[in-house]
Protein backbone atom coordinates (compact mmCIF):
# COMPACT_ATOMS: atom_id res chain seq x y z
CA UNK A 1 0.00 0.00 0.00
CA UNK A 2 1.08 3.54 -0.74
CA UNK A 3 1.98 5.84 2.11
CA UNK A 4 -1.15 7.43 3.56
CA UNK A 5 -1.46 11.15 2.99
CA UNK A 6 -2.91 11.62 6.46
CA UNK A 7 -2.04 9.36 9.35
CA UNK A 8 -4.06 9.70 12.54
CA UNK A 9 -2.92 8.01 15.72
CA UNK A 10 -4.81 7.88 19.02
CA UNK A 11 -6.42 11.23 18.41
CA UNK A 12 -8.48 12.40 21.37
CA UNK A 13 -10.46 15.62 21.18
CA UNK A 14 -12.29 17.52 23.86
CA UNK A 15 -14.43 20.60 24.07
CA UNK A 16 -13.38 21.86 27.49
CA UNK A 17 -14.21 18.91 29.77
CA UNK A 18 -16.33 16.97 27.31
CA UNK A 19 -14.57 14.22 25.36
CA UNK A 20 -15.92 14.17 21.83
CA UNK A 21 -13.44 11.86 20.11
CA UNK A 22 -11.51 9.13 21.87
CA UNK A 23 -8.36 7.55 20.50
CA UNK A 24 -9.12 7.61 16.81
CA UNK A 25 -6.53 5.92 14.61
CA UNK A 26 -6.94 5.82 10.86
CA UNK A 27 -5.05 6.23 7.62
CA UNK A 28 -6.29 8.31 4.73
CA UNK A 29 -4.79 7.02 1.48
CA UNK A 30 -3.39 9.39 -1.10
CA UNK A 31 -5.26 10.15 -4.33
CA UNK A 32 -8.41 8.42 -3.21
CA UNK A 33 -11.76 9.51 -1.88
CA UNK A 34 -12.37 8.71 1.76
CA UNK A 35 -15.80 9.28 3.21
CA UNK A 36 -16.42 9.82 6.90
CA UNK A 37 -19.85 8.62 7.96
CA UNK A 38 -21.71 8.38 11.23
CA UNK A 39 -24.82 9.67 12.88
CA UNK A 40 -25.40 13.36 13.54
CA UNK A 41 -23.37 14.63 16.46
CA UNK A 42 -20.92 11.73 16.51
CA UNK A 43 -17.92 13.98 15.94
CA UNK A 44 -17.24 14.06 12.20
CA UNK A 45 -16.79 17.83 11.99
CA UNK A 46 -14.75 17.75 15.16
CA UNK A 47 -12.49 15.09 13.64
CA UNK A 48 -11.64 17.08 10.53
CA UNK A 49 -11.14 20.26 12.53
CA UNK A 50 -8.77 18.48 14.87
CA UNK A 51 -6.85 16.86 12.03
CA UNK A 52 -6.07 20.32 10.69
CA UNK A 53 -5.47 21.82 14.12
CA UNK A 54 -8.33 24.31 13.97
CA UNK A 55 -8.80 22.92 17.44
CA UNK A 56 -5.67 21.74 19.16
CA UNK A 57 -6.11 17.98 19.70
CA UNK A 58 -6.14 16.94 23.35
CA UNK A 59 -3.71 14.12 22.68
CA UNK A 60 -2.51 11.90 19.85
CA UNK A 61 -0.66 12.47 16.63
CA UNK A 62 -1.63 13.52 13.12
CA UNK A 63 0.82 13.30 10.23
CA UNK A 64 0.00 15.10 6.99
CA UNK A 65 2.34 14.61 4.01
CA UNK A 66 4.44 12.65 6.51
CA UNK A 67 4.91 15.63 8.83
CA UNK A 68 3.58 15.84 12.37
CA UNK A 69 1.09 18.68 12.35
CA UNK A 70 0.16 18.87 16.03
CA UNK A 71 3.52 20.30 17.08
CA UNK A 72 4.89 21.97 13.96
CA UNK A 73 5.65 25.68 13.92
CA UNK A 74 3.67 28.37 12.17
CA UNK A 75 5.43 28.58 8.75
CA UNK A 76 5.35 24.79 8.27
CA UNK A 77 1.74 24.69 9.35
CA UNK A 78 0.78 27.40 6.90
CA UNK A 79 2.65 25.61 4.14
CA UNK A 80 0.45 22.58 4.75
CA UNK A 81 -2.71 24.66 4.87
CA UNK A 82 -1.85 26.17 1.50
CA UNK A 83 -1.89 22.68 0.00
CA UNK A 84 -5.28 22.01 1.57
CA UNK A 85 -8.79 23.25 0.83
CA UNK A 86 -11.73 22.90 3.15
CA UNK A 87 -15.43 23.26 2.48
CA UNK A 88 -17.07 23.98 5.84
CA UNK A 89 -20.40 22.52 6.82
CA UNK A 90 -22.14 25.89 6.57
CA UNK A 91 -19.89 27.36 3.93
CA UNK A 92 -18.16 29.91 6.18
CA UNK A 93 -17.86 32.48 3.41
CA UNK A 94 -16.64 35.87 4.56
CA UNK A 95 -19.90 37.77 4.85
CA UNK A 96 -18.44 41.24 4.58
CA UNK A 97 -17.22 40.79 1.00
CA UNK A 98 -18.70 39.42 -2.24
CA UNK A 99 -18.14 35.99 -3.74
CA UNK A 100 -15.45 37.29 -6.08
CA UNK A 101 -13.37 38.60 -3.18
CA UNK A 102 -13.96 35.46 -1.15
CA UNK A 103 -12.30 33.39 -3.84
CA UNK A 104 -9.72 36.06 -4.60
CA UNK A 105 -8.34 36.16 -1.06
CA UNK A 106 -6.33 32.92 -1.15
CA UNK A 107 -5.17 33.67 -4.69
CA UNK A 108 -4.04 37.20 -3.84
CA UNK A 109 -2.44 36.24 -0.57
CA UNK A 110 -0.57 33.14 -1.66
CA UNK A 111 0.29 33.67 -5.31
CA UNK A 112 1.91 36.48 -7.25
CA UNK A 113 -0.47 36.14 -10.19
CA UNK A 114 -1.51 39.34 -11.99
CA UNK A 115 -5.01 40.62 -11.34
CA UNK A 116 -6.52 39.69 -14.68
CA UNK A 117 -5.35 36.09 -14.35
CA UNK A 118 -6.83 35.91 -10.87
CA UNK A 119 -10.11 37.19 -12.24
CA UNK A 120 -10.11 34.53 -14.95
CA UNK A 121 -9.30 31.83 -12.41
CA UNK A 122 -12.19 32.92 -10.23
CA UNK A 123 -14.56 32.72 -13.18
CA UNK A 124 -13.28 29.26 -14.07
CA UNK A 125 -13.76 27.96 -10.53
CA UNK A 126 -17.22 29.45 -10.23
CA UNK A 127 -18.14 27.95 -13.56
CA UNK A 128 -17.02 24.54 -12.32
CA UNK A 129 -19.54 24.73 -9.49
CA UNK A 130 -22.22 26.15 -11.78
CA UNK A 131 -22.38 29.51 -10.12
CA UNK A 132 -21.00 31.89 -12.71
CA UNK A 133 -23.92 34.27 -12.30
CA UNK A 134 -23.28 34.86 -8.59
CA UNK A 135 -19.79 36.26 -8.91
CA UNK A 136 -20.53 39.78 -7.69
CA UNK A 137 -23.25 38.93 -5.18
CA UNK A 138 -22.62 38.95 -1.46
CA UNK A 139 -23.02 35.68 0.50
CA UNK A 140 -26.19 37.00 2.13
CA UNK A 141 -27.84 37.16 -1.29
CA UNK A 142 -27.30 33.46 -2.03
CA UNK A 143 -29.39 30.42 -1.14
CA UNK A 144 -27.95 27.82 1.21
CA UNK A 145 -26.99 25.49 -1.63
CA UNK A 146 -25.43 28.30 -3.64
CA UNK A 147 -23.34 29.30 -0.62
CA UNK A 148 -22.07 25.73 -0.34
CA UNK A 149 -21.03 25.73 -3.97
CA UNK A 150 -19.38 29.13 -3.70
CA UNK A 151 -17.46 27.85 -0.69
CA UNK A 152 -16.38 24.81 -2.70
CA UNK A 153 -15.10 27.12 -5.42
CA UNK A 154 -13.09 28.94 -2.77
CA UNK A 155 -11.77 25.66 -1.36
CA UNK A 156 -10.37 24.66 -4.75
CA UNK A 157 -9.03 28.12 -5.56
CA UNK A 158 -5.41 27.09 -5.04
CA UNK A 159 -5.79 23.62 -6.62
CA UNK A 160 -5.15 21.91 -3.28
CA UNK A 161 -3.69 18.43 -2.93
CA UNK A 162 -6.10 17.62 -0.14
CA UNK A 163 -9.74 18.63 -0.27
CA UNK A 164 -12.07 18.22 2.69
CA UNK A 165 -15.79 18.59 2.19
CA UNK A 166 -18.08 18.68 5.21
CA UNK A 167 -21.46 17.52 3.92
CA UNK A 168 -21.14 19.07 0.47
CA UNK A 169 -24.53 17.91 -0.74
CA UNK A 170 -26.64 18.51 2.34
CA UNK A 171 -29.40 20.89 1.32
CA UNK A 172 -28.89 20.38 -2.40
CA UNK A 173 -31.42 18.86 -4.78
CA UNK A 174 -30.53 15.39 -6.13
CA UNK A 175 -29.54 16.72 -9.56
CA UNK A 176 -27.14 19.33 -8.23
CA UNK A 177 -25.81 16.92 -5.65
CA UNK A 178 -25.21 14.41 -8.41
CA UNK A 179 -23.30 16.88 -10.51
CA UNK A 180 -21.32 17.95 -7.46
CA UNK A 181 -20.24 14.34 -6.95
CA UNK A 182 -19.18 14.18 -10.55
CA UNK A 183 -17.30 17.44 -10.20
CA UNK A 184 -15.44 16.14 -7.17
CA UNK A 185 -14.50 12.91 -8.97
CA UNK A 186 -13.35 14.92 -11.96
CA UNK A 187 -11.27 17.23 -9.85
CA UNK A 188 -9.69 14.28 -8.17
CA UNK A 189 -8.56 12.89 -11.48
CA UNK A 190 -7.40 16.18 -12.96
CA UNK A 191 -5.57 17.46 -9.92
CA UNK A 192 -4.57 14.17 -8.29
CA UNK A 193 -6.32 15.26 -5.14
CA UNK A 194 -6.86 13.24 -2.03
CA UNK A 195 -10.39 13.91 -0.88
CA UNK A 196 -12.17 13.54 2.42
CA UNK A 197 -15.95 13.84 2.34
CA UNK A 198 -18.28 13.87 5.28
CA UNK A 199 -21.65 12.72 4.05
CA UNK A 200 -24.85 10.94 4.93
CA UNK A 201 -25.97 10.13 1.42
CA UNK A 202 -25.76 6.48 0.62
CA UNK A 203 -26.12 7.00 -3.12
CA UNK A 204 -23.28 9.43 -3.07
CA UNK A 205 -21.10 7.10 -1.00
CA UNK A 206 -21.57 4.29 -3.49
CA UNK A 207 -20.81 6.66 -6.32
CA UNK A 208 -17.62 8.20 -5.06
CA UNK A 209 -16.09 6.44 -2.06
CA UNK A 210 -12.92 4.41 -2.21
CA UNK A 211 -12.59 4.20 1.56
CA UNK A 212 -14.89 4.54 4.51
CA UNK A 213 -14.31 5.76 8.04
CA UNK A 214 -17.23 5.05 10.35
CA UNK A 215 -17.59 6.96 13.61
CA UNK A 216 -20.05 6.22 16.33
CA UNK A 217 -20.35 8.40 19.39
CA UNK A 218 -16.77 9.59 19.20
CA UNK A 219 -15.25 6.18 18.59
CA UNK A 220 -13.88 4.70 15.40
CA UNK A 221 -15.88 1.58 14.53
CA UNK A 222 -14.53 0.94 11.07
CA UNK A 223 -11.89 2.13 8.68
CA UNK A 224 -11.24 0.39 5.36
CA UNK A 225 -12.27 0.17 1.72
CA UNK A 226 -15.84 0.58 0.53
CA UNK A 227 -16.14 -3.14 -0.35
CA UNK A 228 -14.96 -4.13 3.11
CA UNK A 229 -17.43 -1.69 4.61
CA UNK A 230 -20.36 -3.03 2.61
CA UNK A 231 -19.50 -6.62 3.56
CA UNK A 232 -18.67 -5.80 7.17
CA UNK A 233 -20.45 -7.54 10.01
CA UNK A 234 -20.40 -4.59 12.37
CA UNK A 235 -24.08 -4.15 13.28
CA UNK A 236 -24.12 -0.33 13.15
CA UNK A 237 -22.47 -0.34 9.76
CA UNK A 238 -24.91 -2.94 8.47
CA UNK A 239 -27.82 -0.80 9.54
CA UNK A 240 -26.26 2.20 7.85
CA UNK A 241 -25.77 0.44 4.54
CA UNK A 242 -29.17 -1.22 4.53
CA UNK A 243 -30.97 1.99 5.37
CA UNK A 244 -31.10 3.14 1.75
CA UNK A 245 -32.20 -0.16 0.24
CA UNK A 246 -35.96 0.06 0.62
Amino acid sequence: MKDPIIQIRDLTAKYEEKTVLSEISADIPANEITVIIGSSGCGKTTLIKNIFRLYQPYSGSVKIFGQEITTMDEPEYEAILKRTGMLFQNGALLNSVDIFTNIAIPLEQHTKLPAQLIEKLIKVKLNLVNLAEAIYLSPAELSGGMRKRAALARAIALDPEILICDEPSAGLDPLTSNSLDELIMNLKNILDMSIIIVTHELASIHRVADNVIFLDDGKLLFSGTLEQAVRSNIPELKIFFSAGKF
Binding site: F52, L81, T84, G85, F88, A92, L94, I105, P106, A151
Partner: peptide, 17 residues
Protein backbone atom coordinates in the same frame (compact mmCIF):
# COMPACT_ATOMS: atom_id res chain seq x y z
CA UNK B 1 -19.32 37.31 14.45
CA UNK B 2 -16.58 35.84 12.29
CA UNK B 3 -15.81 33.37 15.03
CA UNK B 4 -19.35 32.12 15.48
CA UNK B 5 -19.89 31.79 11.73
CA UNK B 6 -16.62 29.83 11.40
CA UNK B 7 -15.14 32.55 9.17
CA UNK B 8 -12.04 32.59 11.37
CA UNK B 9 -11.60 28.85 10.84
CA UNK B 10 -12.06 29.41 7.13
CA UNK B 11 -9.32 32.07 7.14
CA UNK B 12 -7.06 29.71 9.04
CA UNK B 13 -7.64 26.99 6.44
CA UNK B 14 -6.64 29.52 3.78
CA UNK B 15 -3.32 29.73 5.64
CA UNK B 16 -4.18 33.22 6.88
CA UNK B 17 -3.70 34.18 10.49
Amino acid sequence: TMKVTEELDALRMMALD
